[in-house]
Design a protein around this nucleic acid. Structure first.
Lengths: 187, 187
DNA sequence: AGAGCCATGTAACCGGTTACATGATTAG
DNA sequence: CTAATCATGTAACCGGTTACATGGCTCT
């Protein structure tokens, strides 16, 4: 089993979806912590089905192309359950902007300021999207009684990370810009 | 040019290093925002040399094997300077722990608590290392007059991100644990 | 008429990891 | 004697991205 396999099972544990839907869902809702293109998803679904973790039924549609609706099996759920709390290594981060920051001493300050302002903006946009989503999901979870065994708890937990991540990233961008500006005055 | 190429140039812009040293430096000092194995570094250095961005001299050593000391060239510096402020896309994050959090509703709360306590610990350790490094580097930068064109500024800027990242990660782990505990009491 | 969405796949490529390979010196 | 560190490389593999390929429906 690959991590992508578990990612797909995680989504299918909440609802049955087609390969196309899985790609859409990843793009829009869980893009923060995982993403995959359809070219990776379709073969992975086939593998999961071969292993018995998912199964599909063809849903015929008139106005649109037919689709394969994938559903998680009992074995799939079992597999997913044993994976969730299994320990993992802390993955090494690779962030090109932080890498660029390492060589910021070689840059023209104004150009550096522009770059980090741009990224501050982008992360503020992302944060705004997550905040909207968070208030929605918080509602869902609350009307579900804030139960730990409600799928909304999972969504809410990941979103909490997304919010924190973006806020911290924005803070850092601002710190870089301010440092570049204040020191510029010193020169 | 690959990003790894720029990562190596970034390090070589501060000091001349061997392939082995580059691997060590990445492991110890810049592991937060970039990392690479020696199997990737050696071929990349050869490519950089072919392109004229670095050059090497063989340093003979008695007590140790001889080594190739790589130095950045003027063209290398020029290349690096134009890359630093060039815009990039915000990279998609992939974090398996956050992915697991999404399926936390399927887990036994106590096992989940153990997992997130473990990761809280690991990030606290990482944070402690960064904090030590930060006070050291801050000193270096200050005795360098907090100049924007001092390499210490670059190191300090990336470390600021490292510190913020780890602190936020720890906060999130704690939030997950607390939520799992408080809701447990409700049940 | 053309752009864009729905829907599913395959193939080539590339960056990164793991493993293979060698060999000297030093510390326990 | 053995393990670890210094030092440099190659090869196989694998996950992920980009591009190729097809085709119907809907909205402008």
């Amino acid at each position: 089993m690959t991590t992508l396999g578990y990612a797909l099972l995680s989504l299918l544990a909440c609802e049955s979806l087609s390969g196309y839907d899985l790609a859409q869902t990843m793009k829009s809702r869980v893009s923060y912590f995982w993403h995959a293109r359809h070219s990776q998803i379709y073969p992975e679904l086939a593998k999961l089905e071969q292993q018995g973790y998912v199964m599909h039924t063809v849903v015929e549609q008139q106005d649109r192309p037919d689709k394969k609706l994938y559903t998680i099996t009992e074995e799939g759920l079992t597999q997913l359950r044993q994976w969730v709390t299994q320990d993992i290594e802390v993955p090494g981060v690779r962030d090109e902007l932080v890498l660029k920051a390492y060589s910021l001493w070689l840059a023209a300050p104004q150009q550096a300021i522009d770059l980090f302002r741009q990224h501050e903006q982008r992360h503020m946009q992302q944060l705004a999207e997550y905040e909207q989503l968070a208030s929605w999901i918080q509602n869902c979870w609350e009307s579900d009684g804030q139960r730990l065994d409600s799928p909304w708890f999972g969504s809410y937990a990941t979103l909490q990370r997304g919010l924190g991540y973006e806020r911290e990233y924005i803070n850092w961008c601002r710190w870089v810009v301010e440092t570049l500006q204040s020191s510029k005055a010193v020169i």
